[in-house]
């Protein structure tokens, strides 16, 4: 398949990640959306490296992203639990202390 097909898939995935973050009203969905976006990025890295790159750069970047995603997921989950503990809710719209 051509490179553009992978890019298109990546773009769709990215867009769905954004939609997931923006539209759903649960912090867990925000996390899921972030994972989707990261996956989209990974697909791009690997695809560009495969079709246009040289050596391991793309894959290394992807591995790094996966590692970061894992770390992020762990920390974010801890944060989610803390937020729930403090605010008794998991709706990001209600965690609005940053207003004012």
């Amino acid at each position: 398949m051509a490179l553009s097909a992978y890019i298109a898939v990546s773009a769709v995935l990215f867009a769905l990640g954004i939609v997931c973050i923006v539209t759903r009203r649960n912090i867990i969905y925000v996390l899921m959306g972030i994972e989707m976006i990261l996956n989209a990025a990974n697909i791009n890295f690997v695809a560009f490296a495969r079709f246009n790159g040289d050596g391991l750069d793309g894959q290394m970047m992807a591995i790094f992203v996966i590692i970061l995603a894992a770390a992020e997921a762990a920390v974010a989950l801890a944060i989610v639990l803390n937020v729930f503990h403090l605010f008794e809710t998991v709706k990001p719209s209600e965690v609005d202390l940053m207003r004012d």
Partner: peptide, 17 residues
């Protein structure tokens, strides 16, 4: 400007996108 400063993360993310 206060009108758009809702303090909601999702809204901010939408603005960023």
């Amino acid at each position: 400007t206060r009108l758009i400063q809702t303090g909601r993360i999702q809204q901010y993310a939408a603005f960023a996108v």
